[in-house]
Amino acid sequence: MAGSFYRVECPDCENEQIVFGKAATTVNCAVCGHQLAQPTGGEAILEGEVTETVEAR
């Protein structure tokens, strides 16, 4: 697989959201707007706690 998906917990509101590990754009929390992932050209920098690696479906 070219990349993984991660379940990330927002440090501000504890909302859990699924984020692609190689995100090409900034990913913000759907509830409070806190930045969860910052693109780097490769693996994204994840701001919250990774609670789970989501399996390929």
Rank of each mutant, 00 (worst) to 15 (best):
Q35W: 10
A56T: 05
L46I: 14
Y6W: 13
I18E: 05
E55Q: 06
V8C: 08
E14L: 15
L36V: 00
E49V: 10
G48L: 08
A24W: 08
G41L: 05
T51R: 15
E43K: 07
P39D: 03
I18C: 00
C29K: 01
G3F: 15
H34G: 02
T25G: 06
C32H: 03
T25Q: 09
E9A: 08
A30E: 11
T26E: 14
R7S: 14
C13N: 00
H34P: 00
Y6V: 12
F5D: 09
C32A: 04
P39A: 06
L36A: 02
G21P: 08
N15K: 15
Q38C: 05
Q38H: 08
E55K: 07
R57P: 15
C32N: 04
E55D: 06
Q35A: 14
C29W: 01
L36Y: 01
L36H: 01
A24H: 11
Q17V: 05
L36R: 00
C10F: 01
T53Y: 00
E14S: 15
V50T: 09
E55M: 04
F5G: 09
P39R: 06
N15W: 13
T40W: 08
I18H: 00
E47Q: 08
E55P: 04
E47T: 12
T40D: 09
M1W: 02
M1S: 08
C13Y: 01
E16K: 01
V27I: 13
V8W: 10
A44L: 04
E49H: 04
M1G: 09
T25H: 07
T53A: 02
S4W: 10
F5S: 10
N28K: 10
E47G: 05
V19G: 05
G3Y: 14
C29G: 05
G21F: 10
R7L: 15
V27F: 02
E55G: 03
I18W: 01
A23H: 08
F5T: 07
D12N: 10
E14H: 15
K22N: 14
T53G: 00
